[in-house]
Nucleic acid binder design. Sequence first.
DNA 1: ATCGTTGCAAACGGTTTGCAATTCG
DNA 2: CGAATTGCAAACCGTTTGCAACGAT
Lengths: 150, 150
Amino acid sequence: MKSQPHEVFRQYLEAQGLKLTKQRTEILDYLLRARDHATPERIHADLRAKDPMLGRATVFRTLLLLEKAGFASKILFSDGSHGYEHKFARPHHDHMICVDCREVIEFSNATIERLQDQISRRFQFTPLWHRHEIFGRCRKCGPKPAQGVK
Amino acid sequence: MKSQPHEVFRQYLEAQGLKLTKQRTEILDYLLRARDHATPERIHADLRAKDPMLGRATVFRTLLLLEKAGFASKILFSDGSHGYEHKFARPHHDHMICVDCREVIEFSNATIERLQDQISRRFQFTPLWHRHEIFGRCRKCGPKPAQGVK
DNA sequence: ATCGTTGCAAACGGTTTGCAATTCG
DNA sequence: CGAATTGCAAACCGTTTGCAACGAT
């Protein structure tokens, strides 16, 4: 019952007449493991540790491929930079993002999902996907701006 | 009981020892009127029609100022580009965005707002603001991808 | 008059592209 | 083998910065 991202990706590539390369596998793996800030630059830097020959362009080209294939999507971080996150995750997971330490807490709520569908229907809007992010401060950073630090 | 963006902005600038200039007013006005794709480039191009001397740098600097002041925030569009939206709007307004024609429908739902607070509390998370966007197809564009047109 | 602000053009930094060498199937 | 892919470096933007002229208080 587990979905197998690699297998799905391989099938997609085959169907498109594209090739499964070491680099594409490395980058997909990176996104699957990444829990945060997966910017093109960080992906490139981190993967170079194991594969020094990996080129920047390949990272960008692969991310674009994954995005077009629907396996990843671009996300905007609260600091204004952006990166990618894979879309093999379960149902819909939304984010609570700490503006101090940037911790990302995932949440999902069936009632909210249902209300979204109701609202969409009311406007005769056909929902395809959504993004729901709550920005604030996590337990550790407290309700008030960090003191002393920064 | 109406908030007056211009007045609030003026007071903010005064408090910071900054000046209210023609350019800053123009750019704030633009954001207040803009209903969509307010990218730096588009803002610059559109405002140049009335003020040919307006420089790119001024647009970027003012957007940064508005963002830091908390009057605007950067948003990521579904095509990957990004722009700004002002934050003077009433309570919270969220968006339904048509992936075909890019129409933006605003919605707000008290129950969803309340659930967000509940979820946040459960994680001892202090919410400051949120972004909730539903992507799909509007009434006009129908549930299926546009045919013929593109 | 004084300092912040502006427009310009050059500098930057992230992203894309052309191309010869390489690799997957 | 042949088509797709890669790495590199150059080309491309969108964004930032230094600076002299300008403008708001």
